[in-house]
């Protein structure tokens, strides 16, 4: 049996991994469904934002909304939650492997 392609855009959106932007100032978003590398992610903003996942992203983990350079602030809840310890491409997983607290960096 042949699976039919989604009939319209809205139905297709239903199958796209979704993400949340917590605060408009943020440069990371939170995946609220599991994301595989190469997936097109729908960030639920007004209007919705679409980007391609550069890596897998575990559900409720963060990914970059734009290219981040080493030393850049990582912003969530509208506040700095840490500093990038490596260059992070847009759409890539943001976590302990590429972010640390500023206070730990200064020690």
């Amino acid at each position: 049996m042949v699976r039919q392609a989604p009939a319209d855009c809205e139905e297709r959106e239903g199958t796209m991994p979704k993400a949340i932007l917590v605060n408009p100032k943020d440069n990371v978003a939170v995946a609220v469904e599991p994301v595989r590398k190469g997936d097109e992610i729908l960030v639920q903003t007004e209007p919705p934002l679409r980007l391609t996942a550069a890596t897998d992203v575990t559900v409720y983990h963060k990914f970059a909304l734009r290219d981040l350079s080493r030393g850049d602030s990582v912003v969530k809840y509208g506040e700095e939650i840490g500093v990038a310890t490596a260059d992070i491409p847009k759409g890539a997983h943001v976590h302990v492997h590429n972010v640390t607290s500023r206070s730990l960096l200064e020690e």
């Binding site: 939170v30 963060k62 809840y77 840490g82 943001v94 500023r102």
Partner: peptide
């Protein structure tokens, strides 16, 4: 779970 830093 996905929390990266104490600040977060």
């Amino acid at each position: 779970g996905g929390i990266t830093t104490l600040e977060e």
